[in-house]
Design a protein around this nucleic acid. Structure first.
Lengths: 413, 413
DNA sequence: AACATTTTTTTCGACACCCGCAATAAATAA
DNA sequence: TTATTTATTGCGGGTGTCGAAAAAAATGTT
């Protein structure tokens, strides 16, 4: 049922491709773009002339350090920062932050706020989110009409269309259609993204060498989350955001998980599980939230001497290793980024993880699987939301389907 | 790095789309094709005139039963059976079969053969495969030059480019580049496909209502295999054929698996595992191949009275249930087809499977997950290979990139 | 300093493709 | 026999891309 390609789609797609090439490459010349896209110079010339005229791209002659070559110097093309703006909202445990980002990807304003997400009633939680966005949009330095997209990120499960939060560990509330709420409130298209997916998106932009076609981002925090990129594209479930790595089964009928079930990977490797194990509490003990400082202290103790703390990290590593082994059986091994506060304790986790993965089919060449760590997840999530929103603007607003293109070309420098 | 769309790609893609629409719909009229593809009537008219002229499609006025409508009757378009042919090779335990299929998908010739795959030396195994293909190609009824593609299917792991068998349970041999071998021998493009992937492809063609965008085909046989379709496309690993569901970890350090590791799903749910368990053998006992007749007898005994046989199936169901639960945590639930000899014993497996999956995050609405069974996998594998090869011909040969189109239009009726 | 060389970018003419609309074809209903 | 309905084809127009040539903008050379 895939649909045919019309003649006008052609221009649309090639426009999108040029924009995307510029966003990826920074300041490519027309010749470079022609090379990477495979289109002819004439076409690139025509499209970029359009884009410059519409104020989406600018010519940046500022490429002095090139020189030293014969021939006419290349003219770098860059994204016009004033072409549009996007706004990100990241909601995490007891913490809310927003940022305004210009079209070139630079943060131009931000605001953060503490709040008790675990106990707030539904209307308050929604209200605070709406209020902080409104404050940013009312900033006199900001041209509201240029804000073309809102992207919200949250820890937990979202639906596969990125419209609503279905479930989250940071609140007992469920099924909040944040995307619809924000759209109705501000009249700006919005999405509700899963935090780990956004981490993966951000990594892809930060380090495209390492994180390109296939890789995994795992959040080691209160819960265990995963963002998965396969064949260059973000992998999502068929109904939800999917990739609930933390709730793959490690030991059938095993330790109590925060999700209410038993034996999930998270029930051995989540912060609360490590804590519970280190404190020699029962595996049936109710999960509790553990502060980052406490986790760091726990890791320090585990490094100091062998004892229940070290054993707790060992068990976490084992659960993660067998879980990754099962995952790798499905998708083949890929580079892994460990993100979050417990990623700072990865030295304690890694030996058991590697030992476990080596016992699985997916870990055939376990020594060659490489792990990278990044203790702070929030900047990654924000960055991912920003890039998600910006690429939406690139594709859907600046290379629109069949809508009138009038009105989108604005803010000419 | 995705490449731009050139002007000539346009026609190519739309040609491919028309062919694909005809293959899917059977005998659609030009108007129907225009509707499903979204292209204009003029375009469809022009493209189908080309395709008819080249002998790829034919007009089949044979649609008498339509009638009863006013207006000019539709002219059905059909694939010209003589436009090309493909050849499938299915290699399974002690069994080799080939079939020649015409462009419309009808089997025109087949041949089968027993052989001792487990003990054959490398050259003999390859030699037998080549020989049986050669015999079919030398059939005087067949125009060799019309054979446009070979597709071979094998139980086991293949590489992600469908070129080579990497590992298979039917032989101790590894890394046989069957695709290259066949191509060199016969000068016809070939692929080496994973059996379960082909089962999934076949199901998608057989019952597109049920098996469309997202579904799972699981082979319950000597080993446990899986073919996975996500968002309408066959899912493969990044390096191998992937989807080694049978080697996800059910119980860390548990029963001995045929792969040499411990605790895999297959070590509880493969035929040998069920047999081992029913015979009250140790979980460390070396896996043995069990005949289909023995498995059917075992299932009969399990149905008759409660005992170790029934318990063995229960355990298999549990392993499959927890495995599916972990899988569903990643991709969300989807319809499942159980294929293979033990699928005929699914009545014995299902209760424990459902009980297990209900204990997992992926089994949230476990009662709504539906299972279908199909005891005979070989026809499915062959069908999948055939469709794979035919769609390749559709896309790469009859809607070629920039190659000269001369020489592909042949066999005009 | 003038001219040659190199490389990038733009311009121009040609060609291919798709679309919309009108015309034609082929049936049924009145 | 004529009107109506539906399917298919033909034609003119518009748009997009490509290739080749020209123009532009630098460095090297004499």
């Amino acid at each position: 049922m895939s649909v045919g390609i019309r003649h006008d789609d052609l221009r649309r797609r090639n426009r999108a491709m040029v924009i995307s090439a510029v966003r990826r490459a920074g300041q490519p010349s027309r010749t470079e773009i022609a090379a990477t896209t495979g289109l002819s110079h004439s076409t690139i010339s025509a499209i970029s002339a359009d884009l410059i005229q519409e104020g989406i791209l600018t010519e940046s002659k500022a490429s002095e350090p090139t020189a030293l070559k014969r021939g006419r110097p290349q003219i770098g093309l860059a994204l016009n920062p004033e072409a549009a703006a996007v706004l990100t909202v990241v909601l995490s445990l007891n913490f809310l932050s927003v940022a305004v980002i210009d079209y070139a990807g630079q943060v131009v304003a931000e605001e953060q706020q503490r709040l008790d997400t675990l106990v707030m009633p539904r209307d308050d939680l929604i209200g605070e989110c709406v209020a902080i966005v409104r404050r940013r949009l009312q900033d006199p330095d900001l041209d509201v009409s240029s804000v073309a997209r809102l992207a919200m990120g949250i820890q937990g499960i979202t639906d596969s269309h990125a419209r609503a939060m279905l479930w989250s560990p940071i609140t007992p509330l469920t099924d909040i259609p944040f995307a619809d709420i924000l759209e109705q409130e501000f009249g700006i298209p919005a999405t509700m993204e899963n935090d780990c997916n956004m981490m993966a998106v951000a990594l892809q932009w930060r380090d495209p060498e390492r994180y390109r076609d296939d890789f995994i981002a795992i959040l080691l925090s209160h819960g265990i989350g995963m963002g998965l990129v396969l064949k260059g594209a973000l992998f999502t479930g068929t109904h939800s955001s999917g990739g609930e790595f933390g709730h793959m089964i490690h030991r059938p009928g095993g330790a109590l998980c925060r999700c209410g079930r038993r034996g999930c990977v998270e029930a051995y490797a989540g912060n609360y599980a490590i804590w519970r194990s280190a404190m020699k509490m029962s595996e049936d003990a109710e999960p509790v939230d553990v502060g980052d400082a406490d986790m760091r202290a726990l890791a320090a103790k585990a490094r100091e001497k062998d004892g229940p703390e070290r054993e707790a990290y060992r068990r976490a590593g084992e659960a993660l290793g067998f879980g990754l082994g099962s995952l790798f059986a499905l998708i083949d091994p890929a580079p892994v980024a460990m993100v979050g506060v417990s990623a700072a304790a990865f030295d304690l986790i890694e030996p058991a993880l590697r030992a476990a993965i080596a016992q699985t089919a997916g870990g055939q060449h376990s020594e060659s699987i490489s792990f990278d760590t990044e203790p702070n997840e929030l900047p990654l999530i924000r960055e991912g939301c920003a890039m998600r929103a910006l690429t939406f603007v690139d594709q859907e607003i600046f290379a629109p389907g069949m809508q009138a293109r009038a009105g989108s070309g604005k803010n000419v420098a």
